[in-house]
Write a protein that binds this DNA or RNA. Structure first.
Lengths: 227, 227
DNA sequence: TAGATTGTTAATCGATTAACAATC
DNA sequence: TAGATTGTTAATCGATTAACAATC
């Protein structure tokens, strides 16, 4: 296995490989070549082989890759067998959506507890996860080894809560608030899910397409008027 | 304004500039240099100037950029003044979270209606948005010009619903289901919010950090034993 | 004016693609 | 064995960074 620094681009492609391989396995596909996998994902075969070669040799000349085996290897690379643990902070709509629908265990992460300030839901149970008071957060973190804090609090309190988490020794935050949590060079790992960034990118591409279409029509009109 | 194809990397940075400029404006900052903005975002000044120069000249030598003006320009580039319209499909937890908490209008998009199959909520109202029956979806789309479909349905029906949307002429899907909706080269714009991809990337970086730490400790132990 | 900072051109760096020997 | 396909090295392409004249 190579040990050079792996680029972020490669890391971001790994979950896509994983999902596609799961889908292929579900459809009964047991082997696949880099060429065919590339067809499915819109990648070149070269890129796929180059990506995998960062981590080892998972294929076989003349055969390709065994789907189940490759799936397993990529899962391992992504840390799915690490038994990572998580807690969720903030049981509003998004928090509830994650508690009720997002299957953490599918991705190798165990959700251990939830926290909220609302006394009406403290002590209750969503999808098997108990909601504790925020007042007990620091204590909980000293008594339990937790790898990830899922941050689904209102954005007004996001920075504060994040600071508390960091002070309590959390090492990674999965951030659903639309707030930038860390200065550059912070030792805390922060993975952002910024809905607005995603929507704005889509908005850009829609705008671009509209502009392209308008330009096409203008060219057409001009060509007609010349004729 | 340049008209060469803008790279995806640049587009994905634009919303981050936007958010940071909003934050600066809130804090009363009225002008900023590429150097200082870079400090805030962890970008080089060169990259920032290079990014902006794709779209025009927004700064002034010796002065830097006017925060409010630059914010407005980037909003325009991202299509925030286009009056884009959206509907939301699927009022489960994630759909409800978006209806109740996500402020579409902050990003220049107008949410017009929601759709669901559950007769208990059809006709009701979330945050000013009426829920219609899925049966009326195709009809609604022929009578209303809608730019974006926000797809928050259960993943089992995602492909089907997406196909219906495409058949009804929708041009862009904001996809919250963990399903790949389009083949490469589809004319439909799809922007994916894949929670699991995000979590797995975080999982990778946590694993990497653990490995680095273990390696450091091993080196330390070895050095001590030699001594 | 002098200092600061832009926009842009050139240089560097890194990522993707192509090519091919190795081998199943 | 012959055909297929890998893993890897070399070539190309694109993105980031550095440098600097222009100018506020």
């Amino acid at each position: 296995m190579k040990k050079l620094k792996i680029s972020n681009n490669v890391i971001r492609r790994l979950p896509r490989y994983l999902r596609k391989l799961d889908e292929l396995a579900e459809n009964g596909v047991t082997r696949i070549s880099s060429f065919d996998l590339g067809q499915h994902l819109g990648f070149t075969p070269s890129q796929i082989r180059q990506d995998f070669s960062c981590f080892g040799e998972f294929g076989q000349q003349g055969y390709g890759y065994n789907v189940a085996e490759l799936r397993h290897e990529i899962g391992t690379i992504l840390g799915m067998d690490r038994g990572l643990s998580a807690i969720l902070i903030g049981c509003g709509n998004i928090g509830r959506a994650m508690l009720d629908n997002f299957c953490f265990s599918n991705w190798g992460v165990t959700l251990k507890a939830a926290f909220d300030v609302n006394s009406e839901i403290i002590g209750s149970n969503f999808n098997g996860i108990t909601v504790f008071s925020m007042e007990n957060l620091a204590e909980y973190l000293t008594n339990n080894k937790i790898d990830i804090a899922v941050l689904t609090v209102p954005k007004e309190v996001a920075k504060n809560v994040a600071q508390n988490l960091i002070d309590s020794g959390i090492g990674a935050i999965w951030n659903f608030t639309n707030v930038e949590l860390t200065e550059p060079n912070s030792p805390i790992l922060v993975e952002n899910v910024h809905f607005s960034d995603s929507l704005l990118s889509l908005s850009y591409y829609i705008t671009e397409r509209q502009n392209d279409e308008a330009a096409r029509l203008a060219r057409l009109a001009k060509a007609n008027s010349v004729k």
